[in-house]
Amino acid sequence: MKKEKVHKFGMFIDLDKCTGCGSCMVACMAENNVPFREDETDKLLSVAWLRVYQLNNGKSFPDSDICFLPRPCQHCEGHHGHSPCVSVCPATATDYDNHTGIVSQIYTRCFGCRYCMAACPYHVRLFNWYDPVWPDGMEKSLNPDISVRMRGVVEKCSFCYHRYQRAKDLAYYQKRTEIAEGEYQTACTQACPADAIVFGDLNNPEHRVHQLAQPDNSNGGKPRAKDVFRLLERLGTNPKVYYHSSREWVRRLGDNFQDETQEI
């Protein structure tokens, strides 16, 4: 068997471009068979793998400014795959794949203890408080590449792992060992009308995501590109989602600073 390259799939989200339109959220729901309920306004009960937050600069009119921040799973690597959530799961229902850098979630393994939710500082993990129900006929739109989750388990963004599988299958069928950049793109990246999301292999210098984020792999993946940051960098979660903003106040909201004077 041929030795495969070690990938590190990641995302670069340009907050200067993101308009908060919500396409990514809906693309994700439609792609991943996310259920919906009559009232989804309690966002703490709502299952949405990607959430677009609205940040503000705290100033009053007309100096006020806002920025949208889409937040998929950050696919944290921690130190050597020691992601905040993976390390705590007692049943090994979520795992860090060292070959892709993807934090998986195995719904049929998860027994719903929710420890991983407590561990994730990004509020990425979602519990199925309710039974998923599709109104009669609407189950026709379900995607067979992703299994429907049952009540009582945790789910989260998978970086559309099944699309990776699909791409790999095709490559295998065509007797290729590698897949091209465009062959594996997540549903949210694909949909984003503002081209705010760039997805690819952070280990591959030819991929746009690598060029835009310029991860310093010898230094825990820290971004070297200007105005690029990761959420809560100091926690040591070592996420694989990089954000870009030309506005300093936005970058400041990406992490905690003890006080105003602390250097960003």
Binding site: H82, P90, A91, T92, C110, C113, Y115, N128, V154
Partner: peptide
């Protein structure tokens, strides 16, 4: 736990790194 009938997974599929 959300799936009580699967509670025993914690023993069967134990992750030794987890405090739980």
């Amino acid at each position: 736990i959300g799936q009580p009938l699967r509670g025993w997974f914690i023993f069967w599929h134990a992750n030794v790194h987890s405090m739980l």
